[in-house]
Design a protein around this nucleic acid. Structure first.
Lengths: 158, 158
DNA sequence: TTTTGCTGGTTGCGCAAGCAAGCTTTCGGT
DNA sequence: ACCGAAAGCTTGCTTGCGCAACCAGCAAAA
């Protein structure tokens, strides 16, 4: 995906790499991660989100939001993780419609076991290629962009 | 997806936004683009790649490489675009196994018609949220990362 | 208290994408 | 000239994912 007119040189030099990274990075991470750990990147993301939540517990819908997955997808992923014993699903006492996903002991163990592999893939695909200086200068820009993307899901028409 | 230990603060501040962007950006672009133009982001990428090639012509395999799609996927996408008259497929004279995809007049017209919509989405999702300064400083870093990702597909074991 | 509407989640379905196996054409060795 | 190996797709099948339709529980009005 690339285009020239309409974007100035700096913008193009930002845009092209960005879109390339966005398409290539996820697969680069996934490819060896799954065989090594038996977890999808998606599975891993779900487990991480739970591990960082108080009580290792999150509403299904909250899980969807933090993992940027659709509700339907999260529903199935959680079911699958439940079947594998890594997560437990509890109907919420206060609100009978809602469910909470809870990380099990096995889930936490699995997550911790997967972490080194994940870290290795991240280093190999990203940080091994960048200097500390580069990381420090680009980080905040990425942070601002990520925040903007999260904040503006609807059609912000002028 | 996030992790804390193993990455220092700067790295984490680079990694988390990056992975978030990589997951959210593609959908943000796609969502309105398809209804507006009748083209998938993938379709669009293929047409752009062809439009930038000499003679508006590329080998199927080259197309796969530049769009970062699998050979099987490209095969079907090109077939589909051919059926829609946006691309033409020519068996290569020099090598009977190979095929070239060529952009048709209709394909070029369609691409040009889609461009404003694409540009608008890119601006709305990315450049409207960043200063020129930020774009200038982060661009080269992204470029280096993208280049590294493209260069190191196999298991670069130590 | 019953009805109407809303919210949280699940299920049916279709599409995008990759992997693995297959087919044809070419090339290198003999 | 011939045969095995490799290149360049193509096709069958599986998986990940989202949308839209749906169901259950809650809440507010009648």
């Amino acid at each position: 995906m690339g285009d020239l007119a309409g974007l100035d040189a700096d913008e193009a030099a930002f845009w092209r790499p960005l879109i390339r990274i966005a398409t290539v990075l996820p697969r680069a991470l996934e490819d060896q991660f799954l065989p090594e750990t038996g977890l999808t990147i998606t599975d891993y993301g779900v487990l991480v989100a739970l591990s960082e939540a108080p009580e290792h517990l999150l509403r299904i819908s909250a899980l969807a939001a933090t993992t940027a997955l659709s509700l339907s997808r999260i529903s199935r992923v959680v079911d699958d993780l439940t079947r594998r014993g890594l997560v437990e699903k509890r109907r919420c006492a206060a609100d009978g419609r809602a469910s909470n996903a809870v990380l099990t002991e096995a889930g936490l163990a699995r997550l911790e076991a997967a972490y080194p592999s994940h870290l290795a893939r991240v280093r190999a695909s990203v940080f091994d290629h960048l200097s500390a200086e580069e990381i420090r200068t680009a980080g905040p820009v990425l942070a601002r962009l990520a925040a903007a993307l999260d904040a503006a899901p609807p059609t912000d028409d002028c």
